[in-house]
Amino acid sequence: MTINNDDVIKWLQTYDQVITENKDYLTDLDSIIGDADHGANMHRGFQAVVTKLPGVQDKDIGSIFKTVGMTLLSTVGGAGGPLYSTLFIQAGNRLNGKMELTLSDWAEALEAANNGIIRLGKAAVGDKTMVDALTPAVQTLLDASKDGTSFEEALHLSADAAKKGMESTIPLVARKGRASYLGERSAGHQDPGATSSYLLLKTAADVWTKE
């Protein structure tokens, strides 16, 4: 199986719907340990992304990703804006000129994306951030691309790994972002950024493996 630019567009459009459906949920998570804007910010950003997609749907996948990144940068705000923007721009740089994705392309693109986020946010696994969801998912994809796992199965495995990573943020004490101001009081709550990151990978698995 390979993923073409139509699939990528479908994934982004579906993620916009998923964010719309989960807007209040993400905001609720954020109001417990942050500042109650993650759902609204992601919603604003992906609504803008969806309007840009028709203009780039025939372009290579790298261009689509970079357009998404630049759109998020100017519409999301907060910390989520630069971080999600970096995710798409870094992944896009790896996907320049590609009209189709293989499992190893996807694994390498997400690895670059996660590294970009780690650099910008100065976060590590265990800091209670989106990195906690992305890192195990990236590792799963890299492993799968080496041991002959199918792309379909790898997508589901990476979504499962992201889910576990997201859930692993619940007991953690936040060390980055606004939640860190709470110190010990941030423990016991799931990180909203890890949640939206999980949803991104879950949506890829759902959309790209649907027959």
């Binding site: 604003r44 999301v76 705000g77 804006g81 630069p82």
Partner: peptide, 12 residues
Amino acid sequence: PGAVFTSPTPDQ
């Protein structure tokens, strides 16, 4: 000015 309680963006 950003959105309420949200940092503005680099283009602004």
